[in-house]
Structures are given as C-alpha cells and as structure tokens.
Computed example of a mutant assay.
Amino acid sequence: MRLLSAVLFAVWLLAVSHAVAAQRIVTLAPHLTEWAYSLDMGDTLVGVSAYSDYPEAAKALPQVADYNGVNFRALMALSPDLVLAWEGGNKPQDISRLKQLGFSVFLSSVRTPDDIADELEALGQLVNKERRAALLASEFREQLADLREKYHRATTTPVFYYSWTSPLMTVGKDAWANQLLAVCGARTIFTDAPNDYPQVSIQEVLRRQPALLIAATRSSAQQASVFWEPHRNILDAPLITVDPDVTSRFTLRLLPALSRLCGSVSSIRQSQTASGKH
C-alpha cells in the first residue's frame, strides 16, 4: 500500500513539474490565441500572431508573427514564459529556434476536428487549467458526435468547395474542409486530387457536376454567384458560403458554424431529392 502511494505521489509530482505557471504567453497562430481566451487566460497574453482578431481584445495585443515568420526581436522583448506554436502553420525553422533559445513551447498539430478537444485538454494540463479545458473538451466532443449522428448518410453529397476563383482552388480528400463536409454527410468532388489543395479548371468542375457549391468567402452568396453565371446552363447547383475565418480555424467557434453548414447541406439535399435532381 505504501509502495502504491509512493508511486502515485511520484506520478503526481511528475505531472506538476511539467505544468507551467505561465504568466506571459505569446501565441503564434489565431486559433491558439482563441484557445488562451477560451481557457480564461487572456490576461496572460502579451503577444499574438497576425489575424488574431477574436475576441476583440486580441486586436490590441502586439503582433510577433505573420506569414513571413516569427519576429524574434519583438518576441524576445516580451520575455514570454510560454510560446504556443502551430506545427504546419509556423515555419519549422522558427519552431526549432524557439526551442534552441530555451523557450517553453506548446506545439499544436491539429489534423482532425477531434484533435481540437484533445489539444485543448493538453494545453489546459500544461497551464494548470485542467478543469476548464476538460469541460470545454467534453462539450465539444459531445456536440461534434451529435452532428455526426444527425447528418450521417450512407451516400454522401458531392460538393465543390473552393476558396479562390483566380486561380480556382478546391480541396482534396484529406483537407480540413473535407473533414468538415464528412460530418455533414458530404464530400469534395475532388477526392482523387494529388494533394489537399489542388488548382482545378472550371471545365473539370462542370464535368463532375457537384450537387452543391460552397464558397469559403466573406462575400455574400449573391456576390459569389456572379462567378458561375456564365455556366448556369450547364451547372445549376445551388451556392452557399461559409466564413473562412471560422471554418478554417481550429477553435470552439467551429461547431456553431459547422452546424449551420450541415443544416444547409441537409436542406438542399432534401430539396433536390424531392425534385428528383439527385
């Protein structure tokens, strides 16, 4: 019994020793900025990345990173005791340099929607916010599971999801957006693409005849539809939009937006089925 108690104490001591009583945090990606606020740690943020625009308070913080990379002079001047970095978003050489300089680095590497909950919990454990993180993660997992159950279909709806028109850019099988579509019982029409974000021709889109067009844009659906007007005699698929600032970020705000997307896909699918189009 004493041995068991000693082992448990050693495990607890090891966990505590790895926790960080962070007082000065820098985030190098917008989703990590939101995570800090979600964990009620906004008052510890001293620097953020470009496009950290949610919540509103984040806009007032100094920016230490953008698409060019990390501004090390600016970051070091802030003397952070914890840096939240994004593997896949931040340059590998910048992450390596942070570690070489002796900074404590939390590395986010979200690949699937489920990873959001897992990584938020991991961050919570690191910064002594276990309870808050566990609650948020549990709620996220439950709501995500509900969406999957509600919108699962044996036959998925073929969708053309795009973020740019010049050039025309879409998503492949393993892209983040296609994982969101999968929750909604839909799929990209370019599952055979050689990479996750291929450039395609409008002729190929017309040939594949998607049941739905989804534009990731801050423009209105009416504005986005202008691009397709010359081709409406060939493709009469309806068009909807999603806000890329929400759907492309790995944050808790994703689920309400995903719920709306799934609802739209489901409504259009039912309408098309009733009319005999698909």
Rank of each mutant, 00 (worst) to 15 (best):
L120V: 00
S109M: 07
A122C: 04
L82D: 07
N71P: 05
L84V: 07
S109G: 10
R73V: 13
Q100D: 14
D94N: 14
R97G: 09
Q100C: 01
S104K: 15
L75M: 07
V83Y: 10
F140S: 03
A133G: 04
W86A: 03
A77Q: 13
F106N: 01
L82P: 04
A117Q: 06
Q100M: 03
K99P: 01
F72M: 00
L84W: 08
K99V: 09
N71I: 03
E130H: 14
L107R: 10
F103N: 04
A133Q: 02
K91I: 08
L78F: 05
L101I: 07
D118F: 13
M76G: 10
A85I: 05
V127H: 14
G88R: 06
E121N: 14
S79W: 13
F72Q: 06
L78W: 01
M76T: 15
R111K: 15
N90R: 06
I95G: 08
V70A: 00
A137H: 05
F103Y: 11
P80E: 14
V83L: 07
D94I: 11
R131A: 15
K129C: 00
W86L: 06
P92S: 07
N90M: 04
V105M: 06
P80V: 11
Q93N: 15
A117M: 09
P113R: 11
E119Q: 15
E130P: 05
P113T: 02
R132Y: 02
S109I: 08
L98C: 09
G102M: 01
G88M: 01
E121M: 13
A77E: 13
L75C: 04
L101W: 04
K91E: 02
E130C: 04
L136D: 06
L123P: 05
S109A: 13
S96N: 13
G88V: 02
K129E: 15
V83T: 03
A74E: 10
V127A: 11
D94G: 10
L120Q: 08
L84I: 11
A137T: 03
L98A: 06
Q125S: 11
F106T: 10
E87N: 14
Q100F: 00
D114M: 09
V83H: 07
I116F: 05
P92Q: 02
L136S: 11
N128W: 05
S79T: 15
L107W: 05
G69E: 02
L126N: 02
L120I: 01
T112E: 13
L136Q: 14
L123C: 05
F106W: 06
G69S: 09
I116R: 12
F103C: 10
E119W: 03
L75H: 13
D115W: 05
R131L: 13
E139Q: 13
L126M: 14
E139W: 12
Q100N: 06
L78R: 09
P92R: 08
V127Y: 12
A134N: 11
E139F: 08
D118I: 13
D115M: 09
G88H: 01
S108I: 05
L101G: 01
W86V: 00
G69A: 00
V110C: 02
F72I: 03
N71M: 03
R111V: 00
I116G: 05
V110H: 09
L120G: 00
L98P: 07
V70E: 06
Q100T: 12
L107F: 10
A85N: 12
A85T: 06
V83R: 01
P113F: 00
V83W: 03
N90A: 07
A85F: 11
A122T: 15
